[in-house]
């Protein structure tokens, strides 16, 4: 299951309930050294609770949780020296500069990376003397990642690292995270962006209602469910669903986000049949396109609803 055989994270049957709410309800997984592992799911799926148990911030109700070969309940302190945790907000000291904050956080750890090196690593050289409150959203996220790296950790936790960023800032942060992997670090991140998980993660666990529904490499997850590609289009009025499902090559017809989607084993056959059916009903399909099935389709198929709901 893991790449090198050595598991950096080992979770078995983890449960965490809050009263009647089963935030995490029997989750098991392993993350190998050097992997980028993503937890994908909507808000309230249990991603953050899981990651906080791993970081030693919450005690599990039951199950075993090992990080870097140590039990998180018994040895939280040595684990904290060796992991990096991204602070979602760097506003602890908004009036300290980038350099001052990195120096300060470095002083919390026994082992530390020189501040200059960290600043270069996240490309904040020009803003080294800027107060953190004056950084842009993307720069603040870079700083928060630099703060997670002050102790040269073996394992880095990133909780929704790109939430709220514009596409350009998100891309540049993705490059940064890929760079971590290149340096041999293990990264565990949570996200509710499909593209992010597909772009960054070696393996993804899809979570919903406290359970892991499916886990594996992104192409495998898609291939496991969808041998076919998808034809999508808008039309007004909608074409009859039972008619669509009978078109050539179509395995399944669905309406996703207001768009009609036809999963097909034979795209030319399907498009030909679709156009003649539409023509017969005097309906013009527009925004017609073809795509591979995505993680979004996997999620929809698993839960019956779109991830962004």
């Amino acid at each position: 299951m893991t790449q090198s055989g050595e598991a950096v994270i080992r979770v078995a049957d983890l449960k965490k309930y809050y009263g009647d709410v089963k935030a995490v309800d029997g989750v098991s997984f392993e993350v190998g050294r050097g992997e980028v592992f993503g937890m994908l799911g909507p808000n309230g799926a249990g991603k953050t609770t899981t990651i906080e148990v791993l970081e030693g911030l919450r005690p599990p109700d039951s199950g075993t949780v090992e990080v870097l070969g140590l039990d998180v309940c018994k040895h939280p302190q040595p684990i904290k020296e060796r992991i990096g945790v991204q602070l979602q907000s760097v506003s602890l000291y908004p009036r300290l500069t980038v350099t001052e904050l990195l120096d300060l956080f470095g002083s919390f750890f026994k082992h530390r990376v020189p501040t200059k090196q960290l600043i270069d690593a996240v490309d904040l050289g020009e803003r080294a003397k800027a107060r953190s409150m004056n950084l842009s959203g993307g720069q603040q996220q870079r700083l928060s990642i630099a703060l997670a790296l002050v102790n040269d950790p073996e394992l880095v936790f990133l909780d929704e690292p790109t939430t709220g960023l514009d596409p350009q800032a998100r891309r540049s942060l993705w490059d940064l995270i890929k760079g971590l992997q290149a340096k041999g670090k293990t990264v565990m991140l949570t996200t509710h962006y499909m593209e992010e998980a597909a772009e960054l993660c070696d393996r993804v666990a899809i979570m919903d209602h406290g359970h892991i529904l499916e886990m594996g490499a992104v192409p495998d997850l898609i291939g496991r469910r969808f041998k076919e590609r998808a034809v999508f289009f808008d039309s007004n009025p909608k074409l009859p669903a039972d008619g669509l499902a009978k078109l050539g090559g179509v395995t399944r017809a669905a309406v996703e986000d207001g768009q009609t989607v036809l999963y097909s084993k034979d795209i030319p056959d399907t498009i030909g049949a679709l156009l003649s059916m539409a023509d017969g009903l005097s309906v013009e399909p527009h925004n017609l396109g073809i795509r591979q099935a995505t993680l979004e389709d996997v999620f929809l198929d698993l839960t019956g609803r779109a991830l962004r709901d």
């Binding site: 030693g56 911030l57 945790v85 602070l87 506003s91 602890l92 956080f105 919390f108 750890f109």
Partner: peptide
Amino acid sequence: QQREKGILKRIGATPL
């Protein structure tokens, strides 16, 4: 304020 923003909690994930 720092508790509301989760800063106090997050500090708990460092050895501090």
